[in-house]
Protein backbone atom coordinates (compact mmCIF):
# COMPACT_ATOMS: atom_id res chain seq x y z
CA UNK A 1 0.00 0.00 0.00
CA UNK A 2 2.87 2.34 0.79
CA UNK A 3 3.94 2.14 -2.86
CA UNK A 4 0.53 3.42 -4.01
CA UNK A 5 0.59 6.11 -1.33
CA UNK A 6 3.97 7.22 -2.66
CA UNK A 7 2.35 9.36 -5.40
CA UNK A 8 0.67 11.52 -2.77
CA UNK A 9 3.71 11.52 -0.55
CA UNK A 10 5.81 12.79 -3.47
CA UNK A 11 3.33 15.64 -3.98
CA UNK A 12 3.53 16.31 -0.23
CA UNK A 13 7.32 16.45 -0.33
CA UNK A 14 7.17 18.86 -3.27
CA UNK A 15 4.60 21.00 -1.47
CA UNK A 16 6.75 21.23 1.64
CA UNK A 17 9.86 22.02 -0.37
CA UNK A 18 8.25 24.74 -2.47
CA UNK A 19 5.65 26.46 -0.32
CA UNK A 20 7.51 27.09 2.93
CA UNK A 21 9.18 30.04 1.19
CA UNK A 22 5.78 31.72 0.94
CA UNK A 23 5.32 31.74 4.70
CA UNK A 24 8.82 31.95 6.19
CA UNK A 25 10.89 33.21 3.24
CA UNK A 26 11.46 36.73 4.53
CA UNK A 27 12.18 35.70 8.11
CA UNK A 28 14.80 33.14 7.09
CA UNK A 29 16.41 35.01 4.19
CA UNK A 30 16.89 38.09 6.39
CA UNK A 31 18.51 35.81 9.00
CA UNK A 32 15.93 36.91 11.52
CA UNK A 33 14.97 33.30 12.11
CA UNK A 34 17.23 30.28 11.90
CA UNK A 35 16.28 27.87 9.12
CA UNK A 36 15.96 25.03 11.65
CA UNK A 37 13.45 27.00 13.73
CA UNK A 38 11.47 28.04 10.64
CA UNK A 39 11.45 24.46 9.32
CA UNK A 40 10.32 23.14 12.72
CA UNK A 41 7.53 25.72 13.03
CA UNK A 42 6.44 25.11 9.42
CA UNK A 43 6.28 21.36 9.90
CA UNK A 44 4.36 21.61 13.19
CA UNK A 45 1.79 24.11 11.92
CA UNK A 46 1.34 22.46 8.51
CA UNK A 47 0.62 19.11 10.20
CA UNK A 48 -1.68 20.72 12.79
CA UNK A 49 -3.53 22.72 10.13
CA UNK A 50 -3.81 19.62 7.96
CA UNK A 51 -5.14 17.38 10.73
CA UNK A 52 -7.58 19.97 12.14
CA UNK A 53 -8.84 21.73 8.99
CA UNK A 54 -7.62 19.45 6.18
CA UNK A 55 -10.62 17.06 5.97
CA UNK A 56 -12.95 19.76 4.49
CA UNK A 57 -10.89 20.37 1.32
CA UNK A 58 -9.96 16.68 1.23
CA UNK A 59 -13.68 15.89 0.94
CA UNK A 60 -13.90 18.24 -2.07
CA UNK A 61 -10.95 16.61 -3.82
CA UNK A 62 -12.33 13.18 -2.98
CA UNK A 63 -15.72 14.15 -4.46
CA UNK A 64 -14.06 15.44 -7.61
CA UNK A 65 -11.77 12.41 -7.87
CA UNK A 66 -14.21 9.66 -6.95
CA UNK A 67 -11.44 7.18 -7.76
CA UNK A 68 -12.11 3.53 -7.14
CA UNK A 69 -8.64 2.05 -6.97
CA UNK A 70 -5.27 2.90 -5.47
CA UNK A 71 -3.71 2.49 -8.91
CA UNK A 72 -5.79 5.32 -10.35
CA UNK A 73 -5.12 7.54 -7.34
CA UNK A 74 -1.41 6.88 -7.66
CA UNK A 75 -1.39 7.54 -11.43
CA UNK A 76 -3.28 10.85 -11.08
CA UNK A 77 -0.94 12.07 -8.36
CA UNK A 78 2.12 10.91 -10.27
CA UNK A 79 0.96 12.84 -13.36
CA UNK A 80 0.28 15.95 -11.26
CA UNK A 81 3.67 15.60 -9.57
CA UNK A 82 5.45 15.24 -12.92
CA UNK A 83 3.71 18.31 -14.35
CA UNK A 84 4.66 20.33 -11.26
CA UNK A 85 8.27 19.16 -11.57
CA UNK A 86 8.50 19.92 -15.31
CA UNK A 87 6.88 23.35 -14.99
CA UNK A 88 9.00 24.27 -11.97
CA UNK A 89 12.06 23.25 -13.98
CA UNK A 90 10.83 25.53 -16.79
CA UNK A 91 10.61 28.41 -14.31
CA UNK A 92 6.82 28.64 -14.35
CA UNK A 93 4.98 29.64 -11.15
CA UNK A 94 3.08 26.38 -10.94
CA UNK A 95 0.16 25.56 -8.65
CA UNK A 96 0.01 22.07 -7.16
CA UNK A 97 -3.75 22.51 -6.57
CA UNK A 98 -4.32 23.19 -10.28
CA UNK A 99 -2.18 20.21 -11.28
CA UNK A 100 -4.13 17.88 -8.97
CA UNK A 101 -7.55 19.09 -10.13
CA UNK A 102 -6.40 18.87 -13.77
CA UNK A 103 -5.17 15.31 -13.21
CA UNK A 104 -8.49 14.28 -11.65
CA UNK A 105 -10.45 15.74 -14.55
CA UNK A 106 -8.15 13.70 -16.81
CA UNK A 107 -9.13 10.61 -14.85
CA UNK A 108 -12.84 11.51 -15.07
CA UNK A 109 -12.59 11.89 -18.83
CA UNK A 110 -10.73 8.59 -19.08
CA UNK A 111 -13.16 6.68 -16.85
CA UNK A 112 -16.46 8.15 -17.99
CA UNK A 113 -15.69 9.80 -21.32
CA UNK A 114 -17.34 13.02 -20.13
CA UNK A 115 -17.90 15.16 -17.06
CA UNK A 116 -21.30 14.96 -15.38
CA UNK A 117 -23.30 17.98 -14.29
CA UNK A 118 -22.52 17.83 -10.56
CA UNK A 119 -18.79 17.62 -11.35
CA UNK A 120 -19.15 20.63 -13.66
CA UNK A 121 -20.83 22.57 -10.87
CA UNK A 122 -18.01 21.68 -8.49
CA UNK A 123 -15.40 22.47 -11.13
CA UNK A 124 -16.98 25.89 -11.72
CA UNK A 125 -16.72 26.65 -8.01
CA UNK A 126 -13.10 25.49 -8.00
CA UNK A 127 -12.20 27.75 -10.94
CA UNK A 128 -14.07 30.60 -9.25
CA UNK A 129 -11.99 30.05 -6.09
CA UNK A 130 -8.74 30.02 -8.12
CA UNK A 131 -9.68 33.30 -9.81
CA UNK A 132 -10.91 34.84 -6.55
CA UNK A 133 -7.97 33.89 -4.34
CA UNK A 134 -5.36 36.31 -5.81
CA UNK A 135 -8.01 39.05 -6.10
CA UNK A 136 -9.13 38.55 -2.50
CA UNK A 137 -5.52 38.49 -1.31
CA UNK A 138 -4.84 41.72 -3.22
CA UNK A 139 -7.93 43.43 -1.75
CA UNK A 140 -7.11 42.24 1.75
CA UNK A 141 -3.49 43.40 1.39
CA UNK A 142 -4.68 46.86 0.29
CA UNK A 143 -7.05 47.02 3.25
CA UNK A 144 -4.36 45.94 5.70
CA UNK A 145 -1.89 48.40 4.20
CA UNK A 146 -4.34 51.30 4.59
CA UNK A 147 -5.16 50.24 8.14
CA UNK A 148 -1.48 50.02 9.09
CA UNK A 149 -0.75 53.37 7.43
CA UNK A 150 -3.62 54.95 9.40
CA UNK A 151 -2.36 53.39 12.65
CA UNK A 152 1.26 54.45 12.06
CA UNK A 153 0.19 58.03 11.39
CA UNK A 154 -1.58 58.16 14.73
CA UNK A 155 0.78 56.00 16.72
CA UNK A 156 4.31 56.58 15.47
CA UNK A 157 6.52 53.73 16.60
CA UNK A 158 10.20 54.03 17.52
CA UNK A 159 12.51 52.23 15.11
CA UNK A 160 13.55 49.43 17.49
CA UNK A 161 10.02 48.86 18.75
CA UNK A 162 8.77 48.69 15.16
CA UNK A 163 11.54 46.22 14.35
CA UNK A 164 10.55 44.04 17.32
CA UNK A 165 6.87 44.06 16.37
CA UNK A 166 7.63 43.32 12.74
CA UNK A 167 9.82 40.38 13.69
CA UNK A 168 7.14 39.06 16.02
CA UNK A 169 4.53 39.65 13.30
CA UNK A 170 6.55 37.82 10.64
CA UNK A 171 6.98 34.74 12.85
CA UNK A 172 3.30 34.75 13.86
CA UNK A 173 2.15 35.30 10.26
CA UNK A 174 4.52 32.52 9.17
CA UNK A 175 2.98 30.09 11.69
CA UNK A 176 -0.53 31.10 10.60
CA UNK A 177 0.50 30.77 6.95
CA UNK A 178 1.82 27.25 7.63
CA UNK A 179 -1.44 26.37 9.44
CA UNK A 180 -3.49 27.69 6.51
CA UNK A 181 -1.26 25.88 4.01
CA UNK A 182 -1.71 22.58 5.86
CA UNK A 183 -5.47 23.05 6.20
CA UNK A 184 -5.96 23.96 2.56
CA UNK A 185 -3.34 22.06 0.62
CA UNK A 186 -3.38 18.75 2.54
CA UNK A 187 -6.21 17.85 0.16
CA UNK A 188 -3.71 17.89 -2.72
CA UNK A 189 -1.51 15.36 -0.98
CA UNK A 190 -3.95 12.78 0.33
CA UNK A 191 -7.45 13.94 -0.71
CA UNK A 192 -7.53 11.47 -3.60
CA UNK A 193 -7.15 8.53 -1.21
CA UNK A 194 -10.14 9.57 0.90
CA UNK A 195 -13.01 7.21 0.30
CA UNK A 196 -10.81 4.25 -0.57
CA UNK A 197 -11.20 3.02 3.03
CA UNK A 198 -7.49 2.62 3.55
CA UNK A 199 -7.66 3.24 7.30
CA UNK A 200 -10.23 2.65 9.97
CA UNK A 201 -10.91 5.44 12.46
CA UNK A 202 -8.75 5.20 15.59
CA UNK A 203 -9.66 6.35 19.09
CA UNK A 204 -6.90 7.73 21.28
CA UNK A 205 -8.49 8.43 24.62
CA UNK A 206 -11.16 11.09 24.08
CA UNK A 207 -9.80 11.88 20.60
CA UNK A 208 -11.05 10.07 17.54
CA UNK A 209 -8.90 10.14 14.45
CA UNK A 210 -11.01 9.76 11.34
CA UNK A 211 -9.64 8.26 8.12
CA UNK A 212 -9.15 11.81 6.75
CA UNK A 213 -7.10 12.82 9.78
CA UNK A 214 -4.95 9.69 9.64
CA UNK A 215 -4.29 10.44 5.96
CA UNK A 216 -3.47 14.04 6.93
CA UNK A 217 -0.86 12.71 9.38
CA UNK A 218 0.78 10.74 6.55
CA UNK A 219 0.59 13.77 4.27
CA UNK A 220 1.94 15.97 7.05
CA UNK A 221 4.94 13.68 7.45
CA UNK A 222 5.66 13.93 3.71
CA UNK A 223 5.28 17.70 3.70
CA UNK A 224 7.55 17.99 6.75
CA UNK A 225 10.16 15.90 4.97
CA UNK A 226 9.98 18.32 2.03
CA UNK A 227 10.34 21.26 4.41
CA UNK A 228 13.35 19.79 6.18
CA UNK A 229 15.19 18.35 3.19
CA UNK A 230 14.72 20.86 0.40
CA UNK A 231 12.92 24.08 1.40
CA UNK A 232 16.11 25.85 2.47
CA UNK A 233 17.24 26.27 -1.14
CA UNK A 234 13.84 27.53 -2.25
CA UNK A 235 13.63 29.92 0.71
CA UNK A 236 17.02 31.38 -0.07
CA UNK A 237 16.12 32.07 -3.69
CA UNK A 238 12.46 33.10 -3.34
CA UNK A 239 12.94 34.67 0.10
CA UNK A 240 15.66 37.02 -1.03
CA UNK A 241 13.33 38.46 -3.64
CA UNK A 242 10.68 38.92 -0.96
CA UNK A 243 13.14 40.68 1.33
CA UNK A 244 13.46 43.38 -1.29
CA UNK A 245 9.81 44.17 -0.61
CA UNK A 246 10.71 45.25 2.96
CA UNK A 247 9.43 43.69 6.17
CA UNK A 248 6.09 45.53 6.36
CA UNK A 249 5.12 44.52 2.82
CA UNK A 250 6.22 40.95 3.48
CA UNK A 251 4.19 40.83 6.69
CA UNK A 252 1.06 42.14 4.96
CA UNK A 253 1.52 39.82 1.96
CA UNK A 254 2.07 36.69 4.09
CA UNK A 255 -0.91 37.51 6.33
CA UNK A 256 -3.24 38.36 3.43
CA UNK A 257 -2.41 35.19 1.50
CA UNK A 258 -2.73 33.09 4.69
CA UNK A 259 -6.20 34.51 5.47
CA UNK A 260 -7.36 33.78 1.91
CA UNK A 261 -5.87 30.26 1.86
CA UNK A 262 -7.38 29.60 5.30
CA UNK A 263 -10.75 30.95 4.09
CA UNK A 264 -10.80 28.43 1.24
CA UNK A 265 -9.83 25.62 3.64
CA UNK A 266 -13.34 25.85 5.07
CA UNK A 267 -16.75 25.11 3.52
CA UNK A 268 -19.09 28.11 3.61
CA UNK A 269 -22.83 27.89 3.71
CA UNK A 270 -24.50 31.07 2.44
CA UNK A 271 -28.02 29.65 2.64
CA UNK A 272 -28.95 29.05 -0.96
CA UNK A 273 -25.31 28.95 -2.05
CA UNK A 274 -22.94 26.44 -0.51
CA UNK A 275 -19.27 26.93 -1.23
CA UNK A 276 -17.09 23.89 -0.52
CA UNK A 277 -13.53 23.99 0.86
CA UNK A 278 -11.24 24.27 -2.15
CA UNK A 279 -7.48 23.83 -2.46
CA UNK A 280 -6.01 27.03 -3.90
CA UNK A 281 -2.49 28.13 -4.78
CA UNK A 282 -0.60 29.85 -1.96
CA UNK A 283 1.90 31.24 -4.50
CA UNK A 284 -0.82 32.85 -6.60
CA UNK A 285 -2.46 34.34 -3.50
CA UNK A 286 0.97 35.67 -2.51
CA UNK A 287 1.52 37.25 -5.94
CA UNK A 288 -1.95 38.82 -5.71
CA UNK A 289 -1.18 40.30 -2.28
CA UNK A 290 2.18 41.70 -3.41
CA UNK A 291 0.61 43.23 -6.53
CA UNK A 292 -2.13 44.77 -4.37
CA UNK A 293 0.45 46.49 -2.17
CA UNK A 294 2.36 47.56 -5.29
CA UNK A 295 -0.75 49.25 -6.67
CA UNK A 296 -1.61 51.06 -3.42
CA UNK A 297 1.97 52.24 -3.09
CA UNK A 298 1.75 53.66 -6.58
CA UNK A 299 4.14 51.40 -8.44
CA UNK A 300 2.98 51.89 -11.99
CA UNK A 301 5.10 49.19 -13.53
CA UNK A 302 3.69 45.73 -13.10
CA UNK A 303 5.94 42.94 -14.26
CA UNK A 304 4.04 41.94 -17.40
CA UNK A 305 6.35 39.01 -18.01
CA UNK A 306 5.52 37.60 -14.57
CA UNK A 307 1.79 38.13 -15.15
CA UNK A 308 2.11 36.45 -18.53
CA UNK A 309 3.85 33.46 -16.94
CA UNK A 310 1.14 33.19 -14.28
CA UNK A 311 -1.64 33.38 -16.88
CA UNK A 312 0.09 30.76 -19.03
CA UNK A 313 0.64 28.41 -16.10
CA UNK A 314 -3.01 28.92 -15.07
CA UNK A 315 -4.17 27.50 -18.37
CA UNK A 316 -1.32 25.11 -19.05
CA UNK A 317 -1.10 23.35 -15.65
CA UNK A 318 -4.59 21.79 -15.40
CA UNK A 319 -4.72 20.93 -19.09
CA UNK A 320 -1.25 19.36 -19.10
CA UNK A 321 -2.02 17.40 -15.91
CA UNK A 322 -5.34 16.21 -17.37
CA UNK A 323 -3.64 15.17 -20.62
CA UNK A 324 -0.83 13.33 -18.86
CA UNK A 325 -3.18 11.48 -16.48
CA UNK A 326 -5.36 10.42 -19.39
CA UNK A 327 -2.30 9.19 -21.32
CA UNK A 328 -0.79 7.36 -18.33
CA UNK A 329 -4.08 5.64 -17.52
CA UNK A 330 -4.49 4.65 -21.17
CA UNK A 331 -0.94 3.31 -21.20
CA UNK A 332 -1.40 1.32 -17.99
CA UNK A 333 -4.62 -0.20 -19.32
CA UNK A 334 -3.08 -1.11 -22.65
CA UNK A 335 -0.02 -2.59 -20.99
CA UNK A 336 -2.24 -4.20 -18.29
CA UNK A 337 -0.05 -2.67 -15.60
Amino acid sequence: MLFWLAGGLLVGWSLGANNTANVFGTAVASRMLRFGTAAGLSAIFIVLGGVVNGPAAMATVSELANVDTLRVAFTSLLAAGLIVAVMTRAGMPVSISQAIVGALIGYRLFAHGSIDESTWTLLTKIILAWAASPLLAASLAVLMYKLLAWTFRRLPMPLFALDRWLRFGLVTAGCYGAWALGGNNMANVVGVYLGLDLFAAVSIGPLELSEARILALFGGAAISLGVITYSRRVILTVGRDLVKLDAITALIAVTAQAVVVDFFAHAWDFGTFVFPAIPVSTSQAMVGAVLGIGVVRGFQEVNKRLLGHIALSWVATPFAAAGLTYSLLLWTRVSAF
Binding site: S30, M32, L159, F160, L162, D163, R167, A247
Partner: peptide
Amino acid sequence: RRLLPDTRDDV
Protein backbone atom coordinates in the same frame (compact mmCIF):
# COMPACT_ATOMS: atom_id res chain seq x y z
CA ARG B 1 21.47 41.12 16.89
CA ARG B 2 18.77 39.54 14.78
CA LEU B 3 17.46 42.83 13.42
CA LEU B 4 15.54 43.17 10.19
CA PRO B 5 17.79 44.17 7.25
CA ASP B 6 15.98 47.51 6.87
CA THR B 7 16.52 48.46 10.52
CA ARG B 8 20.15 47.36 10.40
CA ASP B 9 20.78 49.34 7.20
CA ASP B 10 19.00 52.40 8.60
CA VAL B 11 21.05 52.56 11.80
